[in-house]
Write a protein that binds this DNA or RNA. Structure first.
Lengths: 141, 141
DNA sequence: TATTGTTATACTCTATAACTATA
DNA sequence: TATAGTTATAGAGTATAACAATA
């Protein structure tokens, strides 16, 4: 028991802060968080469905439908350019690419607002601690 | 720019780690995160719909339906014991109370698992930094 | 008229099972 | 037979608008 009582709660609270801020920023770009993560993931290079599903941590049918919705808005395109004709590649359209890149930068710049109350030094300490947690980078955008 | 590039991403990654762990723990108690938060909030004392909605950060209709679902499982009860007959109080049933308390303790004990890779000293530092962020406590469970 | 809560409706997200097409 | 992806179906969560009851 190194943590004070209520630490689990505090972590949940922190997570909600981050999520709410993310929803806000995504909404300004007219996207949901799920759509935003998809778009950010493929903004620079296309991916296969299977790989995307693994990276985003969702089942294939869920991804298929997420792509249906965002494809119908013209931000994403399905192609089958591989030699394996079972494979579907997901590309960002030019507009999707533009939105994805702008959103990515915006999130990176403004999500840390949730830490605004901490001093610069504390924010830096926080960043270093978070960076030391495994899997904070990989599984999503 | 005190943070390294990608810090927004890292915060998102951290949030997802926490969320996934929360989903796991809640699932072991046969609840979704939303149901779990509702139950934890009213586990010790009843609340009015309006106050619950504000505390959980959701609109009244959404809360109404969340309560419909969890009430149909017998974990929650609506009463109108106030002098203001418009007000509906949400209570945990004895079973709901039992589950809510067990879940709360479980979350508090096991959610910090996501930080397992950090040293004890670093976990403590992390906890202190998080505790210094305003609104980490209040808005939810 | 303002407040409390519900109903109606619709959309996103996600899961599982069954399916098609290709390898 | 195994893999990639889709379709079908269902349920949770949430939002807005319209409504009913009470103050």
């Amino acid at each position: 028991m190194t943590q004070p009582t209520g630490f689990g709660d505090m972590l949940l609270g922190l997570s909600h802060l981050i999520q709410r801020r993310h929803v806000q920023i995504c909404a300004e770009h007219d996207l949901t968080p799920a759509q935003s993560q998809l778009l950010c993931t493929i903004k620079d290079e296309p991916r296969r469905m299977v790989d995307l599903a693994a990276q985003l941590g969702m089942a294939k049918p869920a991804l298929s439908q997420l792509i249906d919705r965002i494809e119908s808005r013209g931000l994403v395109r399905r192609t089958t350019d591989g030699q394996d004709r079972r494979v579907v590649m997901i590309h960002a359209t030019p507009e999707g690419q533009k939105i994805g890149r702008a959103l990515y930068e915006d999130v990176d710049a403004r999500l840390p607002d949730v830490l605004a109350a901490l001093s610069s030094a504390d924010q830096e300490r926080f960043a270093q601690l978070v960076a030391a947690i495994p899997h904070v980078h990989c599984p999503r955008v």
